[in-house]
Amino acid sequence: MRVTQSIITRTLLQSLNSTKESLREKQTSIATGKRIEKPSSDPINFSKADKFRRKIEQNEGFLQNVESSLGWVENTMSIIDSIYEKILRVKEIAVQGADNTLDEEGRRILSEEVDSIINDIVSLGNSSYLGKYVFAGTSTKGEKPFTYDGYSVVYNGNGEKLFRRVGENYSVVINVSGEQLRATNVFTVLTDLKNALDNNNPEEVADLIARIDQVGDNLLNLNSSVGSIQKQLELIKNRLETANMNLASYLSSAEDVDLAEAITQYNVEETAFKAALSITSNAIQLNLFSFLE
């Protein structure tokens, strides 16, 4: 086959366009900091980068669940702490009420304070977090978990567990139900104390002091169990954050450009492009002169 001047020119133009496209891709890489513009640029690393990116997004979703769960748990612990502080005052009241030198009127005043504390604890038991009742089990909306009629406290929620998904195949229970709070006997002992004070019965009040201490211990144990959930969530949070840091590093290795190397390559190709442009220009002129002759 005879190689004509036009074939040479066409070949040079094709090479020139190819070099121009390569320069454009390198310009884009330098501007964006990414060396993979499309799947065809690097199919293997594009696939790796896509997997890393989707895993990071999934972990971010789990981290959001962990953060909201930590808020729920910390709020629960704060409420139980507040109830425990109320119980410390209740014990002081019981000690005063058991004193034989205290008259009936004095016990009536103490009974009114106990009644007020019961209302306070019921109010704490009806606390909500982000619009959901904390101690209602899965009945987090609607009727308040606890009601008090002046004689007894009624629980209106359930004992179901609230789960939060914090891993691909892992969920954590984050709640304390009202049944668990009621199991500390906080409401039973307080209403018994109120009745004993109303009945002006110092012996019965004295008998309740040990039960009040037990309620305090029960509340501390309950809060300790919630603290264990908090520690578990914090560990999961740290693991997810560490995993995402590693994944971000892998993602960077798969798709990020080495800026210094990219600029060097661009400069080399740009020089070659200018030289090829000059050669092609001369070839086109020569081909034109040959045609005119």
Rank of each mutant, 00 (worst) to 15 (best):
I109C: 04
N100I: 15
I118D: 00
T138K: 08
E104F: 14
V114Q: 02
E112P: 00
G137H: 03
E105R: 11
R107Y: 15
I109M: 11
G131L: 03
T138V: 00
R107L: 02
L102Y: 08
D120L: 01
V122Y: 00
N100F: 14
K132S: 12
L110E: 08
R108I: 01
L110R: 05
R108P: 02
L124C: 13
I117H: 02
K132P: 12
L102F: 12
R107A: 12
D120V: 00
Y129S: 01
G125C: 09
V114L: 01
S111Y: 09
Y133R: 03
G131F: 03
S123R: 13
E113I: 05
R108A: 02
S128K: 12
N100A: 15
S116F: 01
R108W: 12
E113P: 07
E112W: 01
Y129N: 09
S111C: 01
S116Q: 01
E104H: 06
L130T: 09
L110P: 06
R107G: 10
I118W: 03
N100P: 13
T138S: 02
E113F: 00
A136F: 06
I118V: 10
N119H: 14
V122K: 04
E112I: 00
R108T: 04
A136T: 09
E113R: 01
D115F: 08
D99F: 13
S128C: 04
R107D: 07
A98K: 03
N119V: 03
I117K: 02
D99A: 06
V134A: 04
R107E: 13
D115W: 05
I117S: 02
K132L: 11
Y129L: 03
Y129A: 03
A136W: 09
S127I: 03
I121P: 11
A98S: 12
L124I: 02
D120S: 09
K132N: 11
D115Y: 02
A136P: 14
T101K: 03
G131R: 05
L130N: 14
E113V: 03
N100D: 11
G125I: 08
T101V: 05
D120T: 07
N100Q: 14
D99G: 08
I118C: 08
I118P: 04
S111F: 04
K132I: 00
S123C: 05
V134Y: 05
S111W: 05
S128R: 13
V134W: 07
L102R: 14
S127N: 14
K132G: 05
